[in-house]
Computed example of a mutant assay.
Amino acid sequence: MPNRIFLIHGYVEDPTIFDQLVPLLPPAEYVRINLSEEFARWQPIGPINVRSLANYIAGQYNITAKDVVIGHSMGGWTAINIKEVTGATAIQLGSWTDQKKILFPTDNLTFIRFLLVTGVTQSKVFNSFFKRQYPFDESREVYNRLIDGSRQMSRPYLWQQLQTLFANVPPLTVQPDLRIHARPDNVVRYPDEPFVEVPGDHFCLVCHAEAVAKPIRELLSNRP
């Protein structure tokens, strides 16, 4: 078993996104990373990207190749970048290694920041539109809760997350040890590389936790 298993949540999520999954995984020292708290502790000055976040988390927790990092969505993007700088085992859930896989109307950070600072991103009208467009009844409650919660987040924290998603970053030289994805995911396109397909949608780790847990257990059981 690994020294520790780190859990990193996605955009506008928090560590509770893993509540259904963790009880189905082997006993271990689980470390739930709360990115809101981490950014508040870090207080980066100037632009950031996912690699600078990965370096910060790796240094803050002394992550090594003996550790495992499981990340959902943006958390999986962070996890693979932590593997890049530490050699840790990386498990991606509904995530990517190519930022072009993110299904978002634009990746132009200048425009995205304009929407944020003008209040459009957190407006009731904007968020109601996205909630109406969401196609999956199974995970609708999860999605709506996250959208509603994002309206209460500080703009600096949202901007830090958006930079983590879209800011340019040096190319990866590593690949995740395990990719888990649901094909109907409307937030992230499914990978071009081999992956374990599970039922559900972007929030398969909540609505189909056992299907997600099974390949993770298998990977961990075969790990030195």
Rank of each mutant, 00 (worst) to 15 (best):
K66P: 01
A90R: 00
N3C: 08
E13Q: 15
A79M: 05
V12W: 13
A40H: 09
I80T: 04
D98H: 06
D98S: 04
F195G: 07
R32G: 02
L178A: 13
K131W: 09
A182Q: 04
T164D: 02
L109G: 02
I91P: 01
W42V: 09
T97D: 02
E38W: 03
P15D: 09
Q133F: 06
Y143F: 15
S73L: 03
W159S: 01
I57C: 01
L35W: 01
N144H: 13
F126M: 14
P176L: 07
P2D: 12
I5E: 01
I147L: 14
N186G: 08
G149L: 07
R183H: 11
M153P: 05
L219K: 10
V187N: 12
I70D: 01
P194S: 13
A213N: 08
P191L: 01
Y11Q: 04
W77D: 01
R145A: 15
R155M: 11
E210Q: 14
A90E: 02
V117Q: 11
S36A: 13
R151E: 08
P135M: 09
K66V: 08
P27N: 09
T118L: 07
R155L: 12
V22L: 04
I57Q: 00
E38D: 13
I147P: 03
L116I: 04
A88Y: 02
I70P: 00
H208F: 13
N81K: 04
P44N: 13
V169K: 00
G200H: 00
P105L: 10
N108E: 12
Y56S: 05
V50M: 08
E29M: 05
P23K: 10
E38A: 11
T164Y: 01
R145Y: 12
Q133N: 11
G94A: 14
M1G: 14
I112C: 06
S52T: 15
I63Y: 02
A209T: 08
T121N: 06
K214W: 06
S52H: 05
I80W: 01
G94P: 03
T86A: 08
P135F: 06
K83T: 02
F129V: 13
H208K: 13
T64W: 04
V196N: 10
I17R: 03
N62E: 15
V206G: 00
G94Y: 04
L25C: 07
N3D: 14
I216W: 01
W77P: 00
I45F: 10
R140T: 11
V212D: 06
E197L: 04
Q163D: 10
L205Y: 01
L25V: 06
Y30Q: 09
G87R: 01
I48M: 07
L109H: 05
M1S: 14
G87Q: 03
R183M: 13
N62C: 12
N55R: 12
P135A: 11
V22S: 03
V120E: 05
I8D: 00
